[in-house]
């Protein structure tokens, strides 16, 4: 099977030669050890060495200092470095001081047409291997941004005390992403196969917010983002860390093709439980625990885990670490073992 056939067969629960797989997105501090271990000079070449199926394309967004679309909004009142790693969500945000839906325009909303680089989008897509699944890393985390807009704790209370206010803010953020994504999808037309979008809804033990509030205030925007991607013929991978069992069905119903990253140690997120409840209905990506196993385990334990996952999910699961951000505490030998075991 080629990479694309394998990916589509995996997410459509069809027979595969081996399950599709994805390395994820190693953080910069993890890269040197990985490159050294595999004897390669780039993550691109590392991916060819492990032979995974998905190649990510980051959205080029010119907005210093981070130049990252996940930091497109300057909501935080206190100054911080403003890279995805430094975003705190809980820092007091601009809308903390506003209560009226008409205040929505007081914020200096960014215009994606000014920052999202069309030519660079096209160049990046062209430079990405056609043989692999080319996945746009959109994030479009409208819920997390809405949290940052007020400061997360304040935002979660506004969801209860002034839902209309929360709604106008999250809707405006959703509209920003719809516009940004349209630019990206148009600029890469015919050169993109899938997208990654998502928000973190889960802690280790359960949802951070009641499922009904997520359903009424957050998922309408998620659905728009999914519908838009699908109108371009793209497969949608939806990301949420943590224990999100009660909303997996909802994500499926609003059109997500794949649920990522299956944080194996979070409550109810273990592979047997997902198999029991969603086998042959919903596709997943992730599942190889990055909170204990990949950090503390030995290669043979990783291999056993991957074999176990393949037995539970001969198809329907894109095998990948349970967090896309591979941290420097994961031994490169364990990454090697993970991808070798997929091919056994």
């Amino acid at each position: 099977m080629n990479h694309k056939d394998r990916f589509y067969a995996t997410i459509n629960h069809q027979v595969v030669d081996r399950p599709a797989s994805w390395l994820g997105l190693p953080v910069p501090s993890a890269e040197p050890a990985l490159l050294k271990h595999f004897g390669v000079n780039s993550i691109e070449n590392l991916k060819l060495a492990i032979d995974d199926d998905i190649h990510p394309i980051e959205v080029p967004y010119n907005f210093p200092p981070s130049n990252h679309i996940a930091c497109a909004f300057n909501f935080a009142k206190q100054t911080h470095l403003d890279t995805p790693d430094e975003r705190t969500l809980t820092a007091p945000g601009f809308f903390e001081d506003y209560n009226e839906v008409t205040d929505i325009d007081k914020f200096d909303w960014p215009d994606p047409t000014k920052h999202l680089d069309r030519e660079e989008s096209n160049r990046r897509a062209k430079a990405t291997s056609k043989n692999h699944i080319r996945m746009g890393i959109m994030w479009s985390a409208h819920f997390q941004d809405a949290c940052a807009a007020f400061g997360m704790e304040h935002a979660l209370m506004v969801m209860l005390t002034n839902p209309d206010m929360f709604q106008v803010v999250i809707d405006r953020i959703t509209n920003f992403y719809l516009k940004a994504n349209e630019i990206f999808y148009e600029s890469t037309k015919g050169q993109l196969d899938a997208v990654l979008i998502g928000n973190d809804f889960g802690s280790q033990t359960g949802l951070m917010v009641d499922p009904d509030m997520i359903r009424t205030m957050v998922f309408p925007g998620t659905k728009k983002l999914i519908d838009q991607a699908k109108s371009y013929g793209l497969s949608v991978m939806h990301h949420s860390c943590g224990s999100i069992f009660p909303i997996i069905n909802d994500l499926h119903e609003i059109g997500a093709d794949i649920i990522h990253p299956i944080q194996a140690l979070a409550d109810e997120m273990d592979a047997p439980n997902l198999k029991k409840n969603f086998a042959n209905k919903i596709a997943f990506c992730g599942g190889v625990d990055a909170q204990y196993l990949l950090v503390n385990g030995k290669p043979n334990q990783i291999i056993n885990k991957v074999h176990e996952l393949k037995e539970l999910f001969p198809t329907g699961l894109i095998i990948s670490p349970s967090h896309e951000a591979i941290l420097p505490d994961i031994a490169p030998a364990n990454i090697e073992a993970l991808f070798k075991a997929i091919k056994d």
Binding site: E153, L156, M157, M159, L160, T161, T205, G206, L207, M208, V209, D210, M213
Partner: peptide
């Protein structure tokens, strides 16, 4: 017991 979530807990603290 997961009968309430973070928003409700924050309101109680307030």
């Amino acid at each position: 017991e997961k009968k309430i979530f973070i928003p409700q807990m924050l309101m109680s603290a307030k």
